[in-house]
């Protein structure tokens, strides 16, 4: 029972973790991209299409990643080159992504997908309890942790990461020092899009190998909340993603655990948990403000 719960928590947490890590980098550079949901759902449809046309789930993941990155490019052009309002553009990206993915995916509805295989190491995976949990996951679960470690190293241990954070905290000074504010932000937004695309593809290739319209069901928004919850620190985003994964899967195990609530109330839990967590985090203002990129959501136009 516990083993089954942990296994479902991991698969529910991975797409959130991937998307949140990407958004975290974009926000660290000072761009608030509220279109995570749209990029994720484009990744989901791209991943599904890529997997069933080639028969390779890994190729599907790559297509999903590209779909997410391509979607984010629209947002980057409108907000960075044309300095449009980031909040409104993010909403536009979500609506656009939900619409376009529905259109593209129309012919895939009801088709069986291809599932990303799980790792199987003879001896290790067969170990009781720890075997399936530590050595029996699919490649993306391990990759998500590599990604978090890499992003954490990049942001806080590398020179390029320092530049990215400087741009997010004071784009005027960074520009005066000769760094390309817009260029770095483009890269950060595209990275965020690629990660969101991966997270979306994970949903349609690993979590439930199917295409259903609007299948992200608000996960992109939960990922956005996770970035706030994590106060812009990658490892804390991982912790948050697993907490949310646990809340999400509670509904599937509730009956076995003897919780007699109607299914609709259980389905509300992840959304209610997001609200509660956001309130708890914002109550602690000094701590959040310390890590919040100072230029988050502020448009930048180079002066001359």
């Amino acid at each position: 029972m516990l083993e089954a719960i942990i296994l479902t928590v991991i698969t529910a947490a991975t797409p959130l973790l991937l998307a949140a890590t990407g958004e975290l980098v974009a926000e660290r550079s000072g761009v608030l991209n509220l279109g995570v949901e749209g990029m994720m759902v484009m990744g989901a449809v791209g991943g599904f299409a890529g997997a069933i046309t080639t028969g390779s789930p890994l190729f599907g993941m790559a297509v999903g990643m590209l779909a997410g990155a391509a979607t984010s490019l629209v947002f980057a052009f409108v907000t960075l080159t044309l300095v449009a309002n980031q909040v409104a553009s993010g909403l536009a990206l979500t609506m656009f992504g939900l619409g376009l993915s529905g259109l593209i995916g129309e012919s895939y509805v009801g088709q069986p997908g291809i599932k990303l295989p799980s790792l199987s190491i003879p001896g290790l995976t067969d170990l009781p309890f720890v075997g399936p949990i530590l050595f029996g996951q699919d490649a993306m679960v391990y990759f998500s942790f590599v990604l978090v470690a890499a992003v954490s190293w990049f942001l806080f241990r590398s020179r390029a990461g320092l530049v990215l954070r400087a741009i997010g905290d004071n784009h005027g000074s960074a520009h005066a020092l000769g760094y390309s504010v817009i260029g770095v932000r483009y890269l950060a937004v595209i990275f965020g899009g690629a990660c969101a695309g991966l997270g979306g593809a994970y949903l349609s290739v690993a979590y439930t190998p199917l295409w259903v319209e609007n299948m992200t069901a608000g996960r992109g928004w939960v990922a956005l909340a996770l970035v706030v919850f994590a106060s812009w620190l990658p490892w804390r985003a991982a912790l948050g993603a697993y907490l949310f994964g646990a809340v999400t899967v509670l509904q599937f195990h509730a009956q076995a655990l003897g919780i007699g609530l109607p299914s609709q109330y259980l389905a509300m839990l992840p959304y209610l948990a997001t609200v509660v967590v956001l309130v708890a985090i914002s109550g602690n203002r000094r701590k959040t403000r310390f890590n919040t990129p100072a230029c988050l959501g502020v448009p930048f136009v180079p002066d001359r």
Binding site: L82, V83, A84, S89, A92, L93, F96, L98
Partner: peptide, 27 residues
């Protein structure tokens, strides 16, 4: 597919936001 309508609504919002740049800036 009638879903084209949703796509076009999303595009329209993008165009509106992008065109609003013209109010404050010359391109």
């Amino acid at each position: 597919s009638s879903k084209v309508a949703t796509v076009l609504q999303g595009m329209l919002l993008f165009y509106v936001l992008a065109c609003d740049t013209l109010i404050l800036y010359r391109i």
